[in-house]
Design a protein around this nucleic acid. Structure first.
Lengths: 228, 228
DNA sequence: CGGCGGCTTGATCGGTCTCAAGTACGGTGG
DNA sequence: CCACCGTACTTGAGACCGATCAAGCCGCCG
């Protein structure tokens, strides 16, 4: 259950220093984060921000994947969510970040000053509504996560696979950017239970483990059935 | 684990019919919900809205307590949250309610049309920001709930007591409006485990069960320690 | 006083964790 | 190209925590 904190290569305190040049855009219809966001790259397992730090920036994933997590007193790690391309994270109502954030894989992230977003929202009701929508969608996602966490191991894993398949549509296969340990810490299980459950699902012909990070969904109705 | 759905006395479909007269206000500084909200009373265990119904209204608890919940495929009930006096609930970004809502005890609730709130928010950036803040606070609450759900039974119960004590400050005692079954379904435990854990906490002198709904916190540091 | 719902307590069962090997894979250097 | 290594993953055996099944208790209301 104990997980080592990965080596950190980019602290959020450095973001201000690195604030970059404006970013060219090729879209007519783009949100305020794309307009004002500064692209940054985070290496695998590097910290984007830490729990309790000032939430002066919001983030949008361009490519890669991010996990937000909290370390409990006994060293256990709970992952609050995975953020994939297109997702916004770190946008807080409170002054401090409630969770830490790390890149799951090498990730390109747009970084935008919260104060700039807030100022824009105060003048433009469309932006304000967009901020509210983003937070509301995140709320809905976290609520689904709660429902996942009270189920059996098989239900959790099945639900996780369906969620990932839903979020990055790629036919019947899911390419998982995260490790078994990440999945376990997201689902509130151990790495062994996740691994065993995946093996069971393969034996039941619900999935096929092409390789450890690539999973083919062979029988979605069965998975949905398990999902409860 | 199976829980009977309580008798429903007020369906959300009836709210439109019952839309009431304007509500007099005695405050100078009050939010849009207080301004426009229509007071309604819900009997214990009566439904306020159902999962999947159109989310045309938002709600604010004046007195009493509300639970939002979802029934899983096998009949298990997961409570997403308890909403106490002053809390807003049912304010959705999506078109439909993601959870159902019921009164835990007889409750006075302000009901306000979502479209009215949205229209006001579009014109008044303070209102827009208030909506965003409400949703963001709820997000933070749900995230804490996730962290609770991956802990041991004792940690969950201790965390729950501290949360309730925090939300309705009443010295060292907590007056619980909800049943053991509600607590169990909130914490992802069974009623027996909740009851046993409370008894254990009492034996360890961390709490005192004045009666089944009233719990005195005798040793908060110990509870915090357990909370992880 | 009787009955019923909500709560507590006890005994046993089972799913997940823990501890412990063993295996596959990607990268590096020869 | 292969040998080696480290990391990630899988698999197995046994322990343990919370669920389940089953009584019993308490308080409230008729």
């Amino acid at each position: 259950m104990f997980v080592q904190t990965p080596v950190q290569t980019v602290s959020s305190k450095e973001i201000a220093r690195r604030r970059p040049q404006a970013m060219p855009s090729d879209h007519a219809l783009i949100g305020p984060i794309e307009m004002m966001g500064a692209p940054m790259t985070f290496r695998r397992n590097s910290e984007i921000y830490g729990e309790g730090e000032q939430a002066d920036y919001a983030y949008k994933v361009v490519s890669g994947a991010v996990r937000t997590y909290r370390i409990l007193a006994d060293g256990r790690r709970q992952i609050g969510g995975f953020h994939l391309a297109g997702d916004v994270f770190g946008l807080e109502v409170a002054e401090q970040h409630a969770f830490s954030a790390e890149a799951v894989s090498e990730s390109k992230i747009l970084v935008v000053k919260r104060s700039a977003l807030m100022a824009l929202a105060a003048r433009d009701s469309d932006v304000a509504r967009e901020l509210w929508t983003l937070t509301g969608r995140e709320l809905a996602r976290v609520q689904e996560h709660i429902v996942l966490l009270v189920k059996t191991a098989q239900e959790r894993v099945a639900g996780f696979l369906l969620e990932m398949a839903d979020r990055r549509p790629a036919g019947d296969a899911v390419e998982l950017p995260m490790s078994r340990q990440d999945i376990a810490d997201y689902l509130g299980l151990t790495i062994e239970t996740v691994s065993r459950t995946l093996s069971n699902l393969e034996n039941e012909a619900a999935i096929e483990l092409a390789n450890s990070r690539r999973i083919v969904l062979r029988n979605r109705p069965a998975l949905r059935e398990m999902n409860g």
